[in-house]
């Protein structure tokens, strides 16, 4: 086993189709993918991972397109991971983010991959973190991760990215919406897109109010800047990138870059352990005996905690 067909070697040497195949392997989660990830891991940890989240229609894809253009203008290479939802019924998905990223076509310094969420909640797919690792390992300097059009609870991106951009658009909700917990709390940079539309200044003001309240009791902490953009024509986008760079500097200087990396790795390890231990336990106990327990729990003969303790205990 190990490096199946030399894909890892080829991808590290800059072969784009090998990279695409590796990403597919990682998405499909086979044994070969694990071996590939192990081989790639020493090459990771260099990229700046930037998440872009916000409601459907707020302009995430367009902003990603424009951010990538700004970065390419500075000679920075860009990997893009764009996640769209899978149907919970058929498992199928319509991945349409490339429609707004056509400007990036033909540039060898850009690699775009669309991902279906495949049943994962939280705005990302289960394998998004691993796909980011692959792009990081082959040398993309910035990785832009666009989430599923997020509501108020899809905050997984904040645990995955170094910097999270939350995109809002005017007319998508009043101040009360802005006060609710969730997306705003994970924002490192706030963007009011479609700023040429009426109400943009109001939206920005409402956000400002919330940020001020949040920031009041946290001196010395990063204060998310609120920027207005018209992503469709690129207006305000260079400033968004400047804010992202400032945030990266803040993370580096405050030591948060390392501590967040540690927290991220710990979460990841616990997730993998959880999954692995579950699989091993199920394999050891056997499907039928587990189903017997399920029946007994459903019949109210035993509760889940007692059942779980008995299963683990032998």
């Amino acid at each position: 086993m190990g490096d199946d067909n030399g894909l890892v070697t080829q991808a590290l040497a800059g072969k784009r189709y090998a990279l695409a195949r590796l990403i597919s392997q990682v998405e499909d989660d086979g044994e070969t993918a694990r071996a590939a990830l192990a081989a790639l891991y020493p090459h990771t940890g260099r990229a700046h991972v930037v998440g872009i989240t916000g409601s459907p229609g707020s302009g995430k894809s367009t902003l990603v397109n424009e951010l990538a253009k700004v970065l390419r203008g500075q000679g920075v290479t860009v990997g893009v991971v764009a996640v769209d939802p899978s149907s919970p019924f058929t498992g199928g998905a319509l991945l349409g983010d490339r429609v707004r990223m056509r400007d990036l076509s033909g540039d060898p310094g850009v690699f775009i991959r669309s991902m279906a969420s495949r049943g994962s909640l939280g705005g990302l797919a289960r394998a998004t973190g691993d796909v980011i690792k692959v792009l990081d390992a082959v040398g993309f300097q910035v990785i832009l991760v666009e989430t599923v059009g997020a509501g108020q609870s899809e905050v997984e991106i904040a645990r995955t990215a170094h910097t999270t951009i939350v995109v809002e658009a005017p007319g998508m909700g009043d101040e009360v919406q802005a006060l609710k917990a969730g997306l705003l709390e994970i924002a490192d940079v706030l963007v009011v897109n479609k700023a040429d539309r009426p109400g943009a200044a109001n939206t920005a003001r409402a956000l400002e109010l919330v940020i001020n309240q949040n920031a009041a009791h946290d001196e010395g902490r990063w204060r998310p800047p609120i920027l207005q953009t018209v992503a469709l024509n690129g207006q305000g986008v260079p400033e968004v990138w400047e804010a992202v760079v400032a945030h990266r500097q803040y993370l580096r200087e405050s030591g948060l870059w390392e501590s967040q990396e540690r927290a991220r790795v710990e979460t990841e390890l616990f997730n993998v352990l959880r999954e692995e231990l579950l699989n091993r336990t199920l394999a050891r106990v056997g499907r039928e005996r587990v189903q017997e327990w399920v029946t007994r729990i459903a019949d109210r003969q035993v509760d889940v905690y007692t059942a779980a303790a008995s299963i683990i205990g032998g």
């Binding site: 149907s87 498992g91 199928g92």
Partner: peptide
Amino acid sequence: RDAGMEVIY
């Protein structure tokens, strides 16, 4: 998509 495929448009 309805047939369960991942469609990149």
